[in-house]
Amino acid sequence: MFPQAAAIVMSLAVVIATPAEATPRLVPAADREVVFTVDGTATYGTLHVPAHRAGQRLRAALLLPGSGPTDRDGNQPRTSPNTLAQVADVLDSDRVATLRFDKYGTGRTGLGAYHDHPEKLDYPAFVRQAKAAYESLRDQPETDPHALMVVGHSEGAMTALLLGGTVHPRPPGLALLQPQAIRMLDLVALQLHAQIAEATRQGQFTPEQQRAIDAAIDAAVTALREHRPVDPTNLPPAIAKLFEAFQGASGRFVISDDAVYPPDSAAALRPWTTVLLTCGTNDAQVPCATTDALTAALHRAHVGGPGRVPLPGVDHLLHDADHPNTPAPAVLDALHRFAGR
């Protein structure tokens, strides 16, 4: 036998003799409870790990909920759209692990250290909680600490933007889904003006009443920012009650949230950070036009695409008319474009 032939035969023998145990074991997809502590509060969440090879480090994303008492799955006491749970399912198909958690006032976490003094809870506390969640995700044995992303919905998108410029390691990707992209009270005023305009169109108010109400709304926003009592004159009862709540136990949160102008935060992002910003054409809570300034700021920060992606017919909860309970196809496509980069 020629020496070359013998070498080939020996190589084949080595391959044939390799034990089956050398092939990495496939670990099935699974959820597990994760607990981390921030500011004296135990925070509870769900880590979803897609199917993977044993020992493999996966890309991972922190999922951040919208405003109000929105829990780890994206649900509130009277509504269960499962927004974040569904986003986790979408990212699973791209082999991205996810962590979603019960923020203050929701789920197993509750108010935690703020239980006896809920009026002291402010927006920075939620940002610190999200930062602690990011660090918990970073330290999980299945995740790649250099391939972490942050995906936020609504107010959670604003928080994601803040984390993107401050956490370590910096996330290579941010998905801002229907983001709060202007100051909170400006967004509230915009929503209220739209509601009053529609009510006027339906004959509930006269044009003169509409003008008076609109002026009262703007005056109420100014009063809150100047730490003055809101004058309820000319405000419909429901709107007066809303501004009353903004001056009550939630006052500290409202003012601290309103202090953030999201476009200013874009400058802290690292150039070429992958950023997806979605806006639904049927989103009455966050109209696409409210993301114009943030989109321009992201461009000035030289971040990477996909950039702003308008979602035709999609509402604030990522649904369209044909998909009232699941993410619309346009949402799925945008997320896959983002996660597949």
Rank of each mutant, 00 (worst) to 15 (best):
L335W: 09
L58F: 03
L162E: 08
T98V: 07
R300K: 14
Q56S: 08
L187R: 12
G45C: 06
L276G: 07
P229W: 10
C288P: 09
A22V: 14
D292R: 12
G280F: 08
L26K: 08
Q180N: 14
V14P: 04
P50S: 04
A97E: 01
L62F: 02
F246T: 04
R270W: 03
H193F: 07
G173V: 03
D39R: 02
R252K: 15
D122G: 11
P172R: 10
P50K: 01
T70H: 09
V151E: 02
Q195G: 13
V27I: 15
Y44N: 00
P329I: 13
A301K: 05
P3Q: 11
H48T: 09
Q178P: 07
A60H: 00
F253V: 04
F205V: 00
H193C: 02
A130Q: 03
D231S: 13
P69F: 07
H117S: 11
A301G: 10
G105S: 05
I239M: 08
D264V: 13
D73M: 13
N282C: 02
T273D: 05
S136F: 00
T159M: 15
A328C: 12
P310G: 08
E33P: 06
Q285N: 15
A249E: 11
R300S: 12
Q204I: 00
A113F: 11
E208K: 04
R100S: 14
A267K: 15
A20I: 09
T18P: 08
I16E: 11
V230D: 03
S136M: 08
L62T: 05
F246G: 08
L121I: 01
H227V: 12
D257V: 01
H146E: 13
P19A: 10
F126N: 04
P207E: 03
E226P: 06
I217C: 05
V303L: 08
L185N: 05
L277C: 04
R252N: 14
F2P: 12
L58A: 00
R72Q: 15
L242R: 06
F36E: 00
Y44F: 15
D333V: 12
H168N: 08
A30W: 00
A328P: 11
G203M: 01
D258R: 10
T43F: 02
S256I: 09
L162A: 14
L311G: 13
P19R: 05
A130I: 02
S154G: 14
L148Q: 05
L84H: 11
A160W: 06
G66P: 09
L269C: 07
V9N: 05
